[in-house]
């Protein structure tokens, strides 16, 4: 090998192999190698954190899936001007950001495992995404997405502004969107407790509306119509509520009477 690079100054410094070896041996005389368990513990900790981040991102994926599937796709045209606008309006941004943050945390930890450097950024992200899709879909299927949405909805004060804008949509009664729980049904009207807890009387004249025949007390529903006054709402369309199951627990209706007349309804509302 043509090696012109020489350690001439090594010779000029009079350093011999023995000297440097001895110097190093002298320096490490009182040094103990770090025990193997410390390295193993660090490796396991990094793997644990990577796995935990992947699990949390999969949970986020399950909530995103739940919120997307149970979105108002059936009536998006009534809510917004176009499908694109509707998607932008109702995308679960909070959970998407949460998913992104935990994918990055999972990547960071995986990259710091012993062999993590062998994999490119793209491969690690793709792998994380595949785990998220499979594990997240499984978690969604067993209802974990819904459970998390319910828990967060009850505990986060800014839920509707920050996480689930659909709550805001179905509380927009002035613009004809009324969501709530059926409190009573009779052959002339239904009473409904809305998301904010207000009671509404909704007269109906057309019980052939799809889904109406099966309507039961305690059902969460969506109504598109027109506000008549602060207590009455005119119904154009009635649909079962999609998602937002936390409403059912928050507004558990009283045991349903067989029939409720208007006097009882007024008394109930006055008592609130």
């Amino acid at each position: 090998m043509n090696m012109k690079y020489m350690l001439k100054d090594k010779i000029s410094n009079g350093m011999s192999e023995k000297n440097i070896s001895q110097e190093i041996l002298d320096k490490i005389k009182d040094v103990k190698p770090r025990p193997r368990w410390q390295f193993l513990l660090k490796d396991y900790l990094i793997w644990f954190l990577a796995s935990l981040a992947l699990l949390i991102s999969s949970l986020s994926f399950a909530v995103i899936l739940y919120m997307l599937v149970d979105n108002d796709w059936d009536i998006y045209a009534s809510i917004s001007n176009s499908l694109l606008e509707f998607i932008f309006l109702t995308l679960p941004y909070f959970w998407l950001i949460f998913l992104g943050i935990f994918i990055i945390i999972a990547y960071y930890n995986f990259r710091h495992t012993k062999k993590g450097y062998k994999f490119s950024l793209g491969k690690i992200f793709l792998l994380s995404l595949l785990v998220n899709i499979f594990l997240g879909t499984f978690l969604y299927t067993i209802g974990v997405g819904e459970i998390i949405d319910n828990i967060v909805a009850r505990r986060m004060p800014f839920y509707e502004q920050l996480i689930n804008k659909r709550r805001h949509i179905w509380a927009d009664i002035d613009n004809g969107f009324l969501g709530g729980i059926v409190m009573s049904i009779d052959n002339r009207a239904i009473t409904l407790q809305d998301i904010e807890g207000n009671i509404w009387l909704i007269e109906h004249f057309n019980t052939t509306t799809p889904g109406f025949a099966n309507l039961q007390v305690g059902d969460p529903i969506r109504i598109i119509g027109q506000k008549i006054d602060s207590q009455n709402f005119e119904m154009y369309t009635i649909l079962p509520m999609r998602g937002m199951h936390w409403m059912e627990d928050d507004h558990l209706p009283p045991p349903p009477p067989a029939m409720m007349d208007e006097r009882k309804f007024l008394q109930m509302r006055n008592n609130r």
């Binding site: 190093i24 320096k27 040094v31 190698p33 770090r34 193997r36 390295f39």
Partner: peptide, 11 residues
């Protein structure tokens, strides 16, 4: 470098 190698030899 050699001291580091020795300290981390179990790794």
């Amino acid at each position: 470098v050699f001291i580091k190698i020795y300290q981390n030899i179990n790794n």
